[in-house]
Computed example of a mutant assay.
Amino acid sequence: MRARKGIFITGGGSGIGRAMAQHFAAQGWMVGISDLNQQGMDETKALLPDGQCKTYKFDVTDREAWDEALKDFTLVTGGQLHVLANNAGLPSGGPLTEVTHEEMDLLLDVNLRAVFYGAKAAFPYLKAAAPGSCLLNTASAAAIYGMANQSVYGATKAGVRSMTESLEAEWSHLGIKVRSIMPSFIDTPLLQNPPNRSRNTPIRDSVVKAGLEFTPVEEVAQEAWNAVHGDKVHTLVGKTARKMGFIGKFFPGVLRKRARTLAKAHEDSEGRPARS
Rank of each mutant, 00 (worst) to 15 (best):
P124D: 04
Y125A: 05
Y125T: 09
K127V: 02
K127W: 06
A128M: 13
A129L: 06
P131Y: 11
L136D: 05
S140K: 03
A141W: 03
A141R: 00
A142M: 08
A143S: 13
I144D: 02
Y145L: 02
Y145R: 15
A148K: 03
N149D: 12
N149S: 13
N149W: 14
Q150I: 05
Q150N: 14
S151V: 08
V152R: 11
Y153K: 09
Y153F: 12
Y153V: 05
Y153I: 09
Y153L: 09
A155Q: 10
T156A: 04
K157W: 03
A158T: 08
A158M: 05
V160W: 07
R161N: 02
M163N: 03
M163G: 00
M163C: 03
M163W: 05
T164S: 08
S166I: 14
S166N: 13
S166F: 12
L167H: 04
E168W: 10
E168C: 03
E168K: 10
E168P: 02
A169F: 04
E170R: 01
W171C: 04
S172P: 01
S172A: 12
H173G: 00
I176F: 00
V178K: 02
R179D: 12
R179Q: 15
R179L: 13
S180W: 15
I181M: 07
I181V: 15
P183M: 03
P183C: 03
F185R: 00
F185N: 08
F185M: 04
F185K: 00
I186D: 01
D187L: 09
N193A: 14
N193F: 09
N193D: 12
P195W: 05
N196L: 11
S198M: 14
N200A: 11
T201S: 11
P202F: 06
